[in-house]
Amino acid sequence: MHKELSDLINRNVTGANAVAYLTADAKKFDSSITVETSHIYKVVEFLKTNKTTSFNSLHCISGVDYTDYMEVCYMLTNYDPSAVRNLTLKVRVTDRVNAAIDSVVGQFVSADFLEREVYDMFGIKFNNHPDMRRILCPDDWEGFPLRKDYVAQKDYNGMTVYPDNKMNMEDREFIVRQNMIKKAQAEKAQ
C-alpha cells in the first residue's frame, strides 16, 4: 500500500521524491512515506484532493529529534471505510539553527495548533502560519525543550528553574559525604 502511494505521489507531484519505508513486520511496526521537505504542501494538497486517496483529516503532527536531523511526521486519515485509512507522512529537517518548513494550514485547519506545538518543542518554524508563537511554554521561554541537546535555562523572570532546596542533592550525595567523613576520621586517627 505504501509503495503504491509513494509511486502515485511521485507521478503526480514532481520533485516530491516520495520514498516508502516499509517495515519488516507490519503487525508490530508502522510503515511511512518520506517526502522532500520543500514539497510537503504540494504533496498534502494532492493527497487531500485526488480521488484515490482523499485524506481529509490531519490528526497529528509529531516531531522527532534524531541528533543529526529532525523529522516531522504528519498523520493523515480519512473516515471512508473502503479507502486507505491512515498514512504517516514524514519530512526531514537538517538545519537546526534556522529550521523552517511550509505550513499546511491552508489545507488542514487542524495544523494551526499542531504546528505551533512542534515549533514550541523543536524550534521548527512554519512558513505562512498565521500565528507562529509558542503554545505550551511561556512566550518568553528560551530553548526548545524536546530537542536532545536542550539544557534548561537557569533563571526565568527572576525565579530559579532548578532551585537547590528541591533538588535533594544532599540525599543523593549522602554516601559520598559519609565516605569523606570516614576518610577524614581515619586520617585523624593515624
Partner: peptide, 14 residues
C-alpha cells in the same frame, strides 16, 4: 526515544 501523545482535547480547543 520519543513518546508523543495525540490528545483529542487539544484539537477540540482549536
Amino acid at each position: 526515544f520519543r513518546l508523543k501523545v495525540r490528545s483529542p482535547c487539544f484539537t477540540h480547543t482549536s
